[in-house]
Design a protein around this nucleic acid. Sequence first.
DNA 1: GATCGTTATGTCAGCGTTACCACGAATGGC
DNA 2: GCCATTCGTGGTAACGCTGACATAACGATC
Lengths: 320, 320
Amino acid sequence: MTVSRALKPESPVSPVTRRRVLEAIDKLGYVPDMSAGALSSRRSRLVAVLIPSLLHPKNVETAQAISDTLATRDIQVLLVDTQGRLDREERMIETVLRRRPEAIVLPGGMHSDRTAILLRRAQVPIIEIGARPQKPIEHFIGLSMRLGARAVLEHLRAKGRSRIGFVDAGADITGQISDYAEGYAQALRDLDLGAPRIVSGGRAESPYERGGRGLARLLDAHPDTDAVLFTCDRSGVGGLIEARRRRMDVPERLSLVGFGNFDVGRDMVPALTTAGINAAGMGAEVAKTILTALETRERGSVMPPLDRLLDIHVIPRGTS
Amino acid sequence: MTVSRALKPESPVSPVTRRRVLEAIDKLGYVPDMSAGALSSRRSRLVAVLIPSLLHPKNVETAQAISDTLATRDIQVLLVDTQGRLDREERMIETVLRRRPEAIVLPGGMHSDRTAILLRRAQVPIIEIGARPQKPIEHFIGLSMRLGARAVLEHLRAKGRSRIGFVDAGADITGQISDYAEGYAQALRDLDLGAPRIVSGGRAESPYERGGRGLARLLDAHPDTDAVLFTCDRSGVGGLIEARRRRMDVPERLSLVGFGNFDVGRDMVPALTTAGINAAGMGAEVAKTILTALETRERGSVMPPLDRLLDIHVIPRGTS
DNA sequence: GATCGTTATGTCAGCGTTACCACGAATGGC
DNA sequence: GCCATTCGTGGTAACGCTGACATAACGATC
């Protein structure tokens, strides 16, 4: 009836009627039921966003940016944590599809076969973020880890470093870290900086600890190392603490570079140099893509798959 | 029809029929539509969880525990970040109510008048968590900040400390911090440890920085301070860094105690003593309460409001 | 004042489920 | 072999909303 129209700003209702309706709504405490609306209009006003871990602040920033942008179009985000496990991802997608989301955002990289089938069958825009799969399902928005590694190495070379190691201290749930490691190895070759020195931080519980252990192993294997890339600012901080324990001056004797531009690195003494990513910008980009895809579809046409890599830039601070 | 029953494990369908149905579902790629289900059954299978900040790992742990527990009953969580702002909270609740959640979890403490009205009118179980409001809307599950402060002070006294300060380095979005501060002041009196020394970390951007600044101010005002409580492990780490800058030995000259048991504190050198909270346990408790309330309601009766404070215990580590 | 165009409001059906009831078949007790 | 009971299945009517269309109201135009 007219109430439905009165609640939609664009629909033609006389100002008088609209006011009457709104007054009645207010008096009765009426709250529209979106289930019914979704059923009728076939628009759930829901977008599913799966992220590998809610404990990773950059994921959360991205998700928030998506959510905030979509909120302006009256679309809500159903946020789901896959914990980086493919079986869980599959289950989550299965569940979430029952709510008929209008788009699905999920980490790129590996998926189970069934996941891919489910997603394709869902017939809604799919956006993979983060690590670029060999063959994206539809749209992809991520970070150019290789160029990021290159930028870091150029920065370190400019600082006179030439024996540069790499500490892989992440649970590489998205495959991005291995891209970063490859970028590191490639850039070393390109810049003629010798053979790669890659060690893993092992299975320690926290990234801080993995960073510290990783640095220890790296220095044991290559005592002359004069700079280190970490895969996360938290492990970079762990590395910083380890360096301090070994009484190695930072950055005089050893340069450290984190990744991600987290709070924790900025406030260390010395502050951690890092490779900065713009998580919020990425989220905004994702939301924009969703909205465009939705509009395109509404007009009956199809949006060509997007394949986009966002920049990573070096934020020089005290540890380099 | 029979399909609906076949999908519900408890309903009486012959094994043969059920198998036939499931096969057909598989072949057709059928995915049930929960909007329709919700409309018909008046059960949305959705619980709204509002938290003040997704960037606070303990909030996230709690939310995850809620989500995991409810998932066993086929209920999903709609996670919303209020950013600690009451106007945003109100708007979020308004939006989320349109989805007819079966229960609403939100931070305790202050709410706008309209928020309280909306929640009451929603006629679903309401659970406030964290900071205890003077008058909870319905159920409340939180942490006994006062007892926590008491436990920390007893710990410090046992270590021979007697000039104990307090650095409030949080954006006190939930009111819990002021409870903690009060508990500190009260326990000081009870234990006869002199007058409170409370300073704020000010408006700095990150908790690390606020912790460092707060400690600096505290020491300027009371140079003989020999132990400090922080309102967060991150600010505790900031304090640790500041102490190091001032060349004050920790814990010989100065004891530091954080709050919350975050990763970052555990991996410092020395590791940060902290007041540990069991966020996951709290989430499980919340979920249990929701399920009980739902079952009680289904049986036609009403669950008496729960008012529960969970323990906080000291985790002694290197800084005390 | 009849005609047209425009805008505002009303009518109706249907979205995909599930609650409820009705029915037929199988089972069991006597 | 009859009735009572249980079990499994099918039919039907909502649930609360919106899209499409029909109609009403209102000016403007001739």
